[in-house]
Amino acid sequence: MDEKELRLAECFLAVFPGINTDEIAKACSTSVQGWDSVANVTLLAVVEEEFGVNLEGEDLARFDSFSGILSYLRDAEKCTWT
């Protein structure tokens, strides 16, 4: 895991304390117990705060898995650089 993945994993661990660390990279809303709408809002707020990004409403569909959020963060970083 690179630094961004590690930071995102910390966010997942904070919101889903029971999650197995080995499974974070594959985590999605259907596989993680307790990933309901409230947990989703909390997760997105934690990610926004940690990464200083604003997760836009129209992209919400992407934010139902670790990989989806990670790819959004990587895309956002590219946009910042270009």
């Binding site: 966010c11 904070a14 919101v15 304390p17 909390t42 934690v46």
Partner: peptide, 12 residues
Amino acid sequence: MKLIEALAILKS
């Protein structure tokens, strides 16, 4: 306090 810190406190 950040939200992630609050969640960690609640966990402990």
